[in-house]
Write a protein that binds this DNA or RNA. Structure first.
Length: 370
DNA sequence: AACGGAACCAACCGCTGTTCA
DNA sequence: GTGAACAGCGGTTGGTTCCGT
């Protein structure tokens, strides 16, 4: 025999609460405290289910609830937390004093989600959704005719928007770089950069698949990005001597760096468009790889690098608990790893959370909060 | 002013893990 | 040990408000 039913299943009022009902509920809880929701409605003189009373109290009547518009900081925090926790609204609410899970959930679905979609960020994975736009940006930035074969060869990169984004950022910075302008015709540099993008991406994806159980996937990502950034920098500066020097100074720091260094040997691309068939092959190889976000998850634990997002159906509280804030923040940052393009200097921000917050700040339309 | 669609959000629904008779 | 209810959570609904035509 189980418990007695909490309330009658019929004859109870549903729908919006009246001020009188609110008054009764608040008065009762002030006097007796919350809890014992089964008997509360009857004792408080309400013709409501206990569950309904609990919901009304926790979502609306609680005195510590902060009502009104979400601030810019709160919105940033929600996005940041969502990238780590997924649709764990109660967990997110626990970190936002005065806000309820229901309120945050509603706000996410009606405001943030749409805003992210509008700016091209997938609200589930927190990764860019429009790689082809990046591609367009890239070609426009090159300010030169990129042959169709090369473009076609790059198509598989649509699954790897991060690299394209990275390239765009670097190139946009490079456009205004006096060093680069002094180094030679810009078109020549970019002709080198395009095939390199493919190789670097393929190498990075391979690297990601071979992630070791000892190192966190997030760290691997970070290393890969850092290496990619360094290589980008080399290319932008187009100084082979400096490249070799740097290579000698940081031997075999990681596989990714080695792979990238091999890919950018100038001699490889000296003979005009010799590399195009090779590019096609590389692109084909790359197309067989899973996008970063889905490949890099270690099998011996529950760590999910997919921006730390786990769908309700696939996640478990244990898995969520294992995701400490530092590592998930690192994963998030890697996803949005970026360069200090304006100065052609690649910066590796130690404060991962801060970095991604910074990026989100850029993505959000601040004017909405003015 | 009237209308229709979009946006918003409080409340409900249904599921899951926990508690307890 | 069993099973029913509780408590909590995320998803969804539907009523209301807003806004453009």
């Amino acid at each position: 025999m189980g418990r007695a039913p909490c309330c009658e299943k019929s004859g109870l009022k549903k729908g919006p609460w009246t001020p009188e009902e609110d008054e009764k509920l608040v008065a009762y809880i002030k006097e007796h405290g919350q809890g014992n929701w089964r008997t509360l409605p009857k004792n408080a003189g309400l013709v409501r289910c206990g569950k309904s009373c609990r919901l009304r109290w926790t979502n609306y009547l609680r005195p510590d609830i902060k009502r009104g518009r979400f601030s810019f900081e709160e919105e940033e925090a929600i996005i940041q937390l969502h990238s780590m926790l997924g649709n764990k609204w109660s967990a997110i609410a626990a970190r936002l004093p005065g806000r309820t899970d229901n309120e945050i959930k509603n706000y996410w679905n009606t405001h943030i989600r749409k805003r992210l979609l509008r700016i091209g960020i997938d609200p589930v994975t927190h990764t860019p959704r429009w790689p082809r736009l990046d591609l367009l940006d890239l070609t426009s930035l090159l300010d030169t005719q990129v042959d169709l074969d090369t473009l076609r060869a790059m198509e598989p990169l649509a699954s790897y928007p991060d690299v394209l984004h990275l390239a765009c950022t670097v190139l946009s910075g490079a456009t205004s770089s006096p060093q680069l302008q002094a180094a030679g015709p810009y078109a020549e540099q970019t002709q080198l950069l395009l095939p390199w993008l493919l190789q670097a991406q393929a190498a990075t994806a391979t690297m990601a698949q071979q992630v070791t159980p000892l190192a966190s996937a997030a760290d691997q990502f970070l290393q890969a990005d850092t290496a990619a950034c360094q290589q980008m920098s080399y290319l932008v500066h187009a100084n082979p001597e400096a490249q070799q020097q740097q290579l000698a100074q940081q031997p075999q720091q990681d596989h990714m760096a080695a792979a990238c260094h091999g890919a950018v040997q100038p001699s490889v691309y000296d003979s005009q468009l010799d590399y195009v068939p090779a590019l096609m092959q590389m692109a084909s190889d790359a197309s067989n790889l899973q996008p970063w976000s889905s490949t890099v998850s270690t099998s011996n634990n529950n760590y999910n690098v997919n921006s730390g997002v786990s769908t309700p159906s696939s996640s478990s509280p244990a898995a969520a608990a294992q995701m400490n804030s530092a590592s998930t923040a690192a994963a998030t940052t890697t996803t949005y790893g970026r360069l200090n393009a304006s100065s052609d200097v690649i910066t590796a921000d130690d404060d991962a959370g801060l970095l991604s917050m910074h990026l989100y700040s850029e993505l959000l339309d601040v004017s909405d909060y003015m």
